[in-house]
Design a binder for these strands. Structure first.
Lengths: 333, 333
DNA sequence: CCCTGGCGCTCGCTAGCCTGGAGTGCCAGA
DNA sequence: TCTGGCACTCCAGGCTAGCGAGCGCCAGGG
C-alpha cells in the first residue's frame, strides 16, 4: 500500500500524463496542487514508485509514465466520483428524449453518442433474445423456395431468419406452420418452447422445427454496434498501433467477448493488458451493464488509449447506461 | 488524344506507381514491356504528359506520379478487362454458396468479403423497402405504452418501428388495427397502400396511420454497411489523411450519397476529386449496381486510395454484385 | 531522520551540414 | 526523330554539435 504522499504524487502524475501525453518530470509535479514538497523529494518518491511498478521511464533521464498498475491504482483511488460536464449531460439528455424508432437504430445511435461525448470508440452490445419471451412469431413466404421466419420478443428485439423450402411447399402448409409455431412459442422463451407438441401434420412439424432452429441459431448472435473507431486514429500517433487496433475492432466477436469478459470478472475498467486481448494492450476499456428490472439486457462500453480520462469515461458510461436502460424499460415493461 | 506511344508510357507509369507507390522515373519505364524507346525519349514524352495534366512531379528532379486525369485515362483505356485471380474468385464462390440466414447479415458479410478480397474499404447499400410490395405486416404490443409495427417486404427486407401508445389502448384494438393494416397493405407497395379506407373505428384508424407513417419514415432510410475501414490505415501513411478518411466513412449518409451519386452519373469509377467529397480527394470509388429483374435493388462499392488496382477492383465488384444479385433474386423471385 | 538544494550526468531532440543517388532537362549528333 | 551524354536539382540519410529536460546522488539543515 502506498502512503498518502506517494498516492497524491502518483495521482498528479497520472492526471498530468492524461492531459499532456508527455512523460512527466519531477518539477511539474512539485508545484502541482496537493503536492507540497520539493522536486528532489518527488524524484525520490518517483524512484520508489518506479521500483514498485507504478511508473516507468521511456529511457534514462526522461520523465515518468504511468504503467497499467499505476492507472489501476489511480482508478481504484479516485477522489472525485467523476462528473459529466453540463454540455455533455445535456447532450445525453436531449438524445434520449428525442430517441424513437427501431431498437437497432437506437443502439446504433447510442454508439455515436458515446463516441462523440467521450471522443473514444464506443461499443454497444444489444439485448439477446434468448431469455425474453416470444410475443409474436410468423412464417412469411417470399418465393416458392424461400420463406422468412420473424419473431418479436418481449424486450423489443426482433429476429428474422430465412428458411429454404422444398419447391412444392404450399401456402396452406406455411400458414399452418405459422399458426402452430404461434401456439407453441408465444409466451415462452426460446428455451422453454415446447417443440415436441405435434400439429398432426408431419410436413408442418418439419417446417416448424426448421424455422425454430433458424431462430435459435440467430438468437445466440449478439447484436453489436461499434462506433467512433476513427477516434483511435487521433489517440495514437504510431501508425501501426492504429492499424492493429482498427483491425481488431472490426472483428466484432472479439469485441463482444472482450466486453462480456470484463463484466464477468466484475470489473468496470480494464486497463491495458488486464483485458487480455493482445492487439489492444495500448487500450483500456470502460464498461457498464444495462440493467432492466434486475436483468442485464446489454452492455455499453468505451475503448480508448490507456491514458484516457477515466473519471469522465466512467461518468459518461454510467449515465448513458442508466438512460438507455430506462428507455429500454419503457419498451419491455 | 494521346498517340500510341504516350498511351503505353502512361499506362506503364500508372501500373508501376500502383504497385510501388513511388514516383516512377524514366529509366524504369524505358525497359518496361510495351515500351521500346530510350529513357531520354521517355523523358520527353513524360514532359509532354505532365504539361497536358496526366502526370505530376512531387518536386523537380523526382519521378512522375499520375494525376487524377492520368488515372482516368488509364481506366478508360485499359487493355485487359481485369480478371479475378483464382483464389479470390473461389473465395467469392464459397462465400455465396454458404450464405444463409438474415438479409442484413448477408449484406454485412458481403462488405467483409469485398474488403478482404480487395484489401480496401467496402460499402454495401441494401435494397430499399419503398418499391417492394408488402408480404406481411403486424402490430405487436410490447407494453401498455409501446407497440412494434413489423413489415416484411417481397424483396426480403424487414422493417420494424416502435409506436408510442396511449396508456389505455386495448389488446383488442391493437389486433383490430393489425388486421386492418393487413387488408390495406398486403400486396401493395408502401406508396400504393390505400390508407384512406376506414376500418369503421376511428381509434383503430389512428393506430393504423401511426404505424404506417412509422414504416414510411423508416423505409426511406437506406441500410448501409461499411467494412474494412481499417484498410485505409494501410493505404495512407499520412496520419491525418487516415483520420479524415475514417471520420468521413463513419458518416454513413455521406457514403450513401457518394455511392448513389457516382452511379447516377453513369460511372463505375470515380477518381479523387471526381466524386466531389472533399475529405476523400485521396480516394477513388469503384461501384456496381445490384440488379434483380431489371430493378436496381442495391449498390456495392469499394473505396481505396487513388492508386488502387483498378482492373482488379472492377473485376471484383462486378463478380460480387452479380453473385449477390443472383442470391437476392432467389429470395425475391 | 527526513527533506531540500545543488551538482554532474545522461539522453533525446533539433538544426545544420554533407554526400550519394536518382532523376530531370537540354543539347548535339546520328 | 531518336538517342547518348552531361550538367543540374533535389531528397534521403548519416553524422555532429548544442541544447534542454530530467534524473540520481550527496551533503547540509531543520
Amino acid at each position: 500500500m502506498l502512503d498518502e504522499r506517494k498516492t497524491s504524487i502518483l495521482r498528479a502524475i497520472v492526471q498530468e500524463y492524461i492531459s499532456t501525453a508527455q512523460p512527466v518530470g519531477s518539477t511539474h509535479i512539485a508545484d502541482a496542487p496537493g503536492v507540497r514538497v520539493s522536486s528532489a523529494t518527488v524524484r525520490n518518491e518517483m524512484a520508489v514508485l518506479e521500483q514498485e511498478g507504478y511508473l516507468a521511464q521511456p529511457h534514462t533521464s526522461a520523465g515518468r509514465v504511468p504503467t497499467d498498475k499505476g492507472y489501476r491504482f489511480f482508478v481504484d483511488h479516485m477522489t472525485t466520483p467523476g462528473r459529466l460536464d453540463s454540455a455533455a449531460s445535456q447532450r445525453v439528455g436531449t438524445f434520449f428524449d428525442g430517441a424513437h424508432g427501431r431498437l437497432e437504430e437506437l443502439l446504433h445511435q447510442t454508439t455515436n453518442l458515446l463516441a462523440q461525448v467521450t471522443q473514444h470508440a464506443a461499443v454497444v452490445v444489444g439485448p439477446r433474445a434468448e431469455t425474453a419471451t416470444v410475443r409474436s412469431v410468423q412464417i412469411v413466404g417470399l418465393s416458392s423456395r424461400v420463406a422468412l421466419v420473424v419473431a418479436v420478443f418481449s424486450n423489443g428485439t426482433i429476429d428474422n431468419q430465412t428458411m429454404e423450402l422444398d419447391g412444392d411447399t404450399s401456402e396452406l402448409r406455411l400458414s399452418a406452420a405459422s399458426a402452430h409455431l404461434q401456439t407453441v412459442m408465444i409466451g415462452h422463451s426460446l428455451d422453454a418452447a415446447d417443440l415436441k407438441r405435434s400439429s398432426g401434420d408431419a410436413a408442418v412439424d418439419l417446417l416448424c422445427s426448421v424455422g425454430f432452429e433458424a431462430l435459435r441459431k440467430g438468437s445466440s448472435d449478439e447484436s453489436v454496434f461499434v462506433g467512433g473507431a476513427s477516434s483511435m486514429a487521433r489517440a495514437f500517433d504510431a501508425v501501426d498501433t492504429v492499424r492493429n487496433v482498427l483491425r481488431t475492432l472490426e472483428q466484432q466477436y472479439v469485441v463482444v467477448s472482450l466486453v462480456r469478459d470484463v463484466l464477468n470478472r466484475g470489473l468496470t475498467v480494464a486497463i491495458g493488458a488486464e483485458h487480455g486481448v493482445e492487439p489492444l494492450v495500448a487500450c483500456s476499456v470502460v464498461v457498464a451493464p444495462v440493467m432492466v428490472d434486475g436483468d442485464q439486457v446489454g452492455t455499453i462500453g468505451i475503448l480508448g488509449p490507456t491514458r484516457m480520462d477515466y473519471p469522465q469515461a466512467l461518468a459518461t458510461v454510467d449515465v448513458v447506461s442508466e438512460r438507455l436502460a430506462r428507455r429500454l424499460g419503457e419498451g419491455a415493461a
